[in-house]
Design a binder for these strands. Structure first.
Lengths: 117, 117
DNA sequence: ACGCCTCCTTGACATATGTCAAAGAGGTTG
DNA sequence: CAACCTCTTTGACATATGTCAAGGAGGCGT
């Protein structure tokens, strides 16, 4: 991977023409790819699934559910957060609660769905 | 990345319960993640976009369009092929033509779309 | 046959990624 | 305060990934 990938802000839901509509610009492709990368891992898919299903979950519940260390969960959650796919953690007592940002995931789907336009 | 990711066949369109419906099994999450991984790169997003927009494109047109070597395009195309997102190349004369498999991409969208169920 | 296309494979490489253990940072409860 | 929880950060690591140059493989044209 010789070329370093540009660093851009991806916390907002993506907003660009659908992939299938016309050949995508370099910049838009990067926006899409970075968000997909955030989700392209089995552990992250399961985390998103858990967050989407139960609407507020804390790290201590997630870690045993997916079978990795809490440190690793924390790392994955921050990747999902940076991609705007989940909310900032909200501390309540000793726990930190996260929730999925459905609109961000939905926006991503609309962009890559070949039928969605 | 200490643990090696299992190798499974991903050439067929994915078919499983939506991520948002219920906590996803390990196996299903892997199926989803592998397909997302195949698309989680700016070059691959652009390639898919080109294939979706023009319905049949050959490598020699793709390489200059995305700005990498033909060898690299070839590599990306085979990743997309392994994920079932594009068809096997069809040789015609000196060129090899590829086309997007919309139904595979569509199936992936339906699984990850939080609104799609 | 020979040279010339287009394409794919291989090898090598620099970088990114996922994982954990260990150590900190915040908060709670004796 | 001190012991304890939960969670995040840091450091280190093994593996995966994206890229290219070089060399084949298949096909066309003279």
């Amino acid at each position: 991977m010789p070329k370093a990938l540009p660093v851009i802000d991806t916390t907002d839901p993506i907003c660009c023409a659908p992939v299938a509509a016309a050949p995508m610009t370099d910049g838009d492709a990067l926006e899409v790819a970075l968000r997909l990368k955030a989700l392209a891992d089995p552990v992250r898919v399961r985390l998103m699934s858990l967050l989407l299903a139960g609407d507020e979950v804390c790290t201590c519940d997630l870690a045993p559910a997916v079978g990795v260390t809490e440190a690793t969960v924390s790392h994955h959650l921050s990747a999902l957060k940076k991609a705007g796919l989940i909310s900032d953690g909200e501390r309540r007592g000793m726990n930190v609660y996260y929730r999925a940002r459905r609109e961000s995931l939905g926006a991503l789907c609309r962009v890559i769905d070949p039928a969605c336009c």
